[in-house]
Structures are given as structure tokens and as C-alpha cells.
Simulated scan of single mutants.
Amino acid sequence: MSTAPRRWTRALTTALWAAAVLVTGPTAASVAAQGDSAPAKATNAAATRGHAGEPAAYEHYVALGDSYTAAPLVPQLDIAGGCYRSTNNYPSLVAKALDITTFVDRSCSGAQTKDMTQSQLPGVAPQFDALTPDVDLVTVSIGGNDFTVFGTLVGYCPTLRASDPTGTPCRDEMRSDGRDRLLADVQQTRERVSAVVAAIRERSPNARIVVVGYPQIAPRQGTCPDRLPLADGDVRYAVQVNKRLTDALRQAAMSNQADYVDVWSASRDHDICSTDPWINGQYTDPSRAQNYHPFANEQVAVAGLVEDLLR
């Protein structure tokens, strides 16, 4: 990753949270952001807890993830030590729908895979601290912030549009050294997410593990520079990176015999440019969603996918 995108992303992170800080108080950090396939079968005991025709019952659920799990600014907002977590994000909806006795949500905006085992923010414990042997359900969605992949796509790449509005200035810069830096970073992300899933199983060996993929952010066809200000040719590049990222999560789930929730397929025709978007565009709406982050309807849809898998 070139140093220019990294510097720009740090500046973007501060700007992204300015609106949230004005509305809610303390400071924080953010930035986050997918595979067509049937869910991988889980082999642990929790996966087969229910009898034939009966839903499996879960008593101790832990949710792990980044801002696509935390859902910053989706009402109602819990500052959560700087993690900016919605009380109506998909883990909260799942816990309510399944009447789960003990629910712990450790998702945090801006989280990377490293934040599973180290403190992301002062006073915020590593997400893995919530994992114990008695946990019987874990959902996890992580990886979009590693190597600033998501921040580069929605933060740095739009600044290149003016140089070539109908071309592919972002893709060209990412390939300037002879390889595609973003796609190479995503490949390393797959290995990191796989290690995260394996470590969850070590800490909570009786848990059913569900890896939740990312949604489609950019449209497969067309552009909408007022909402997603990428150069016209870079919209297709964003779809490629977005898809490769969610494939990385799917592969990490399959390689560890975990379940996978295919949000990518479910979110088709709900990209930023669509008439029924699940993801907010470039402008933060303090009453609905952080820019480039899920609306409440996306969280409801993802919760439904998870519930369907678990029932």
C-alpha cells in the first residue's frame, strides 16, 4: 500500500467521525467494508443442538466485528467506549429474535483482525476477551479495515476522480508497481481472517461459528458520482475488490468448518447507487448511518439471514 493512501485514510477517519462526535459526545475512529456460495457446514456440537424440526437453542452469544457489524449511527447509538455501536445492529436483532440469555457485543468501528487480541481503544478490551468455553454461538465479520483496503476505496480513490473522470485512475495507481496492491492485500486478509476463526474455535470449542460476509457497496452497472464519487471506470474496480474481500471471508469460513452468511448475494440491487440502498453514500446522516456504512434496513436483512441459518 502506498504511503499516500495511508496518510489520506488517517485524515479521513478523523473527518468521518466529526459528525458523530458533534451529535453524541466523545471521540472515536472508524472505517470498514464480500462471495456467492452456499453456507459451509459447521461440524461442532452446537450446530446440531436442535432436534429434527426444532430450532437450535443458544444461551451464550458473542458478536465480533468491525463497523459493518457495529453499524455506527443506526438508531439507537451506543458510544461504547468509542466503538460507536448501534443497539439495533444485526447481532442485537439476532439475540432478541432467538431469545438468547447471555449476549455480548464486542463489535467496534474501525476494528482490524489484530484487535481481536489487543486493545483497539483506551479502555476497550480485545474482542477475544469475551470468548469463554461456555460460549455456544459466535458471529464474526472482520477484515475490511486490514491494510486500509476499505479506507482506500472510499477515502483515497474518490480524490483521484478529477484527474480522469471516465477512466480508472485508482486502479491504475494501485497497479503502478506491476501488481495490484489492493488485491494482494485482500489475499493476506483471507489468511488473517482464517486465523481469527481458528482462534475462536480454540477459545470457545463448543460454539457454532458464523462468519458474516460483506454487502455489495458499488453497483455492477452504472455510476452515481453524487453518492459514490469514484471515476467511472473505477466503479467496476471497486466491485472487484469488494467481491474479492467477501470471498476471502467465505474461504476463511470454509477452511475452518464454520458457517458462512452470504450477504453479497442478498444485497444485489441494494448497492449505494440503487433505488433501495442498504449502504449510505458519501454524506453522513447523523440520524440514519455513517457515510459508506449500513443503513438499518441492511442490518435487519443481515439479521434475517443469520436467523434463517440458526433456526
Rank of each mutant, 00 (worst) to 15 (best):
A32G: 06
A32V: 02
A33Q: 11
Q34C: 05
S37P: 09
S37C: 15
S37W: 09
A40S: 09
K41E: 07
N44S: 13
A46E: 00
A47E: 05
H51A: 12
A52T: 11
A52R: 12
E54V: 13
E54T: 12
P55H: 09
H60R: 13
Y61E: 09
Y61R: 07
Y61Q: 07
V62F: 04
D66M: 06
D66P: 07
A71H: 09
A71S: 15
P72L: 08
L73E: 11
V74I: 08
V74R: 02
Q76D: 15
I79G: 00
I79D: 02
G81I: 12
G82H: 11
C83M: 10
C83L: 08
Y84L: 14
R85T: 13
N89Q: 14
Y90G: 01
P91G: 14
P91M: 13
A95P: 00
A97D: 05
L98A: 03
L98W: 01
D99M: 06
T101D: 15
T102K: 14
D105K: 10
S107V: 10
C108I: 15
S109C: 02
A111R: 04
T113F: 00
T113M: 02
T113R: 01
D115P: 03
M116P: 05
M116N: 10
M116A: 11
T117K: 15
S119R: 09
S119I: 05
V124C: 01
A125G: 07
P126G: 12
A130R: 08
L131M: 08
D134T: 15
D134F: 10
V135G: 01
V138A: 00
I142N: 02
I142P: 01
G143Y: 13
F147M: 11
F147W: 11
V149A: 12
F150W: 11
G151V: 03
V154T: 04
V154K: 00
